[in-house]
C-alpha cells in the first residue's frame, strides 16, 4: 500500500512494485484525463507534475513519488468554475482537434510558463517538442502558449500556479 497525493487529495493505492504512476492514476484513481500514448516517454501524453516539475508518468514508478505533490490535468484549474489561464487560451485558440494529446500538451505548457512566463518561440519549441500531436496542431499550441503568456502578464491577481 502506498499513499499518493494527487491534486491535493490522498489516494491510498495498491501498486505492485515498478507499476508506473500513469496506470495508478488512470485505473486506480480513475483520473482518466492523463493519457497513455507510448509507454516509453516518447510522446508526452502522460505528462503530469510532481512537485511542479513535468514528468512522464508512463515511466515513473508510482512508489517513487509517494509523499510528493502530484498534479494532473484535473487539478490545474483554480476552482470548479474557473479554468486555468492556459486552458482558457487553449479554448480561445480553438487548439484541440481529437484532443487526446491535449492534457499532456497543457501540462507541459503550464510547467513551461511557471518556469518562464515569457518564452520565445525557440523556448516554446524546445519545451514542447516532447509532446506529440498527431492532429498537427503545433501552430495553435504555440499561439495558445503565447496568448496565455500575454494573459499572465496582464493579470496581477490571477496566479498561474494551481
Amino acid at each position: 500500500m502506498i499513499n499518493l497525493t494527487i491534486n491535493g487529495k490522498e489516494y491510498p493505492v495498491e501498486a505492485p512494485a515498478g507499476m508506473p504512476l500513469l496506470w495508478v492514476i488512470r485505473e486506480q484513481c480513475e483520473l482518466t484525463g492523463t493519457k497513455f500514448g507510448c509507454g516509453i516517454a516518447q510522446c508526452g501524453a502522460c505528462t503530469v507534475h510532481v512537485d511542479g516539475q513535468p514528468i512522464r508518468s508512463c515511466i515513473t514508478p508510482a512508489s517513487s513519488v509517494e509523499g510528493k505533490n502530484i498534479t494532473t490535468i484535473e487539478g490545474i484549474a483554480p476552482d470548479e468554475n474557473t479554468l486555468h489561464i492556459v486552458q482558457q487560451a487553449w479554448i480561445e485558440e480553438q487548439t484541440p482537434q481529437c484532443g487526446y494529446c491535449q492534457s499532456g500538451q497543457i501540462m507541459s505548457a503550464v510547467a513551461l510558463l511557471n518556469e518562464n512566463p515569457t518564452p520565445s518561440d525557440e523556448e516554446i519549441e524546445q519545451a514542447m517538442s516532447g509532446n506529440i500531436c498527431r492532429c498537427g496542431m503545433y501552430g495553435r499550441i504555440k499561439s495558445a502558449i503565447k496568448r496565455a503568456s500575454a494573459a499572465l502578464q496582464a493579470s496581477t491577481s490571477n496566479p498561474l500556479l494551481p
Binding site: 488512470r26 480513475e30 479554448i91 491535449q102 492534457s103
Partner: peptide
C-alpha cells in the same frame, strides 16, 4: 461562420471521454 467548437471545452479539462477512458 466559425462558431466555437462544442467538443473543445471538455478536451482542455481532461473530462472528454475517449474509448481508452471507459470505466
Amino acid at each position: 461562420t466559425s462558431q466555437p467548437r462544442l467538443d473543445i471545452p471538455a478536451k482542455v479539462t481532461g473530462t472528454a471521454k475517449f474509448g481508452m477512458d471507459v470505466i
